[in-house]
């Protein structure tokens, strides 16, 4: 076997092995509650994607424990927005407390959390990463727009925690894997 052919064969074989070990995204139930972690308006884009996929989903930027009643899946969209926090009239710490409480309650009620990070690098670094890490480490599946994972931040968490992750190139491409989670 020529050297180049061997390299290509090795690459395909390794990729196949890695792929076979990558965890399944899984199936989740509706109704869905969509909320933010960091109050970015990205949550509104996810709402639009859910509508396109005809999912039974309600969106609440400031969802609290009472909103989990009857919910089968919680989708959280992490990303910090100072304008969003201003609109909500809360501080970053208030928001972190709300999200931590919600995540804890969802875990106690066995409501699976799906993370959708669609804001790219604009919702990474700085004040966003605290929210990103909290949700990524506590979710059952992640859908990530690739630009927000250029530093493999989500890939590392996915591998360390064994959480399945689907990476897409554009926000609108996130609709399909999102729909598949529920169909």
């Amino acid at each position: 076997m020529k050297k180049q052919s061997f390299k290509i064969f090795s690459f395909i074989a390794i990729s196949a092995i890695l792929f076979s070990f990558s965890p399944e995204m899984g199936k989740y139930e509706q109704p869905i509650l969509i909320t933010s972690a960091g109050q970015s308006a990205d949550v509104k884009l996810v709402k639009l994607l859910a509508k396109k996929q005809e999912l039974n989903a309600e969106t609440k930027l400031m969802a609290d424990l009472s909103d989990l009643e009857g919910i089968k899946t919680l989708i959280i969209v992490p990303g910090f927005s100072s304008k969003g926090l201003g609109a909500a009239g809360i501080s970053q710490q208030d928001e972190m407390t709300r999200v931590e409480t919600l995540v804890k309650a969802a875990n106690e009620k066995n409501i699976p959390i799906v993370m959708m990070h669609i804001g790219g690098n604009a919702r990474r670094g700085g004040q966003s990463d605290g929210f990103c890490r909290l949700i990524a480490e506590n979710c059952k599946a992640m859908i990530v727009v690739a630009q927000g994972n250029e530093d493999d931040f989500f890939t590392r968490i996915s591998e360390e925690k064994g959480i399945p992750m689907e990476s897409v190139e554009k926000i609108s491409f996130a609709a399909e894997p999102m729909g598949k989670l529920f169909k």
């Binding site: 304008k83 969003g84 609109a87």
Partner: peptide, 10 residues
């Protein structure tokens, strides 16, 4: 890429 930012009411 553009990020959406909601105008705060206050």
């Amino acid at each position: 890429q553009f990020t959406p930012e909601l105008s705060p009411k206050n």
